[in-house]
Amino acid sequence: SELMNSSKLIRMLEEDGWRLVRVTGSAHHFKHPKKPGLVTVPHPKKDLPIGTVKSIQKSAGL
């Protein structure tokens, strides 16, 4: 199965306009000026399962 580095996923979010608002432990929480909701990324993780990545991307509207 495909894995993604959390840094790469965070870069994709930031390029889309998401900004880090809070860190709780290894959970990084992002908000967007125009899009609704809060997106949480486990970080640092070298090997996020593709299912997790897809669900984060979906929440972020990517």
Rank of each mutant, 00 (worst) to 15 (best):
I50G: 07
S59A: 15
P36N: 08
V23P: 03
E2N: 10
F30P: 00
M4I: 08
M4V: 08
M12G: 04
L9W: 03
L48K: 02
A60K: 01
L13S: 00
D47C: 14
R19F: 15
K46G: 10
K35P: 00
T52P: 02
V23A: 13
D16C: 05
A60S: 05
L48I: 12
G37A: 06
K45L: 07
E14W: 10
K35D: 01
G17K: 03
H28S: 06
P42W: 03
L9F: 03
A27N: 12
H32R: 01
L48P: 01
K35H: 04
T40L: 08
S6G: 04
A27V: 09
I56E: 02
L38N: 08
T40I: 12
S59T: 12
V21Q: 07
R19H: 07
K34W: 13
K31W: 08
K46L: 15
S55R: 14
H28M: 06
R11C: 10
R22T: 07
K45D: 08
G17A: 03
V41H: 01
I10E: 02
K34M: 10
R11P: 02
K45W: 07
L9V: 08
D16L: 05
V41N: 00
S1W: 03
V53T: 05
G25R: 15
P44Q: 04
Q57A: 09
E2V: 07
L13M: 06
V41P: 00
T24Q: 10
G61A: 05
R22E: 09
D16I: 06
D47S: 13
L20R: 09
P42S: 05
F30R: 00
K35L: 03
T24F: 10
D47H: 15
G51Q: 13
E15H: 10
P49D: 15
K46N: 15
Q57P: 01
L9E: 01
H29L: 13
I56H: 01
K34P: 00
F30D: 00
S6C: 03
S55V: 07
E14S: 07
M12L: 11
E2M: 10
G37P: 03
R19D: 06
P36G: 08
K45P: 04
S59V: 12
M4P: 05
D47R: 10
I50E: 15
L13K: 00
I50D: 15
A27I: 11
E15M: 12
W18Y: 02
L38K: 07
P36F: 09
H29V: 14
S1L: 10
L48G: 01
E15P: 00
K45G: 06
V41T: 02
H28W: 12
S55E: 14
W18E: 00
I56Y: 01
V53H: 02
G51P: 06
P33R: 09
G17E: 05
P42R: 04
S26Q: 14
H32Q: 01
H28Q: 07
E15G: 07
T52S: 06
R19K: 12
G17M: 03
V21K: 05
D47M: 11
P44C: 05
E2F: 09
M12F: 07
M4Q: 12
H29Q: 14
V39P: 02
L9Q: 02
K35S: 03
K58C: 12
K58E: 15
A27Q: 14
V21P: 00
G37I: 03
K54S: 09
S26K: 13
S1P: 10
N5L: 08
V23W: 09
E15S: 08
F30I: 00
L3P: 15
M4N: 08
L20E: 04
A60H: 02
T52V: 15
R11K: 12
V41C: 04
S6Y: 04
K58Q: 15
K31N: 09
T24G: 10
S55P: 02
K34L: 10
F30Q: 00
K58V: 12
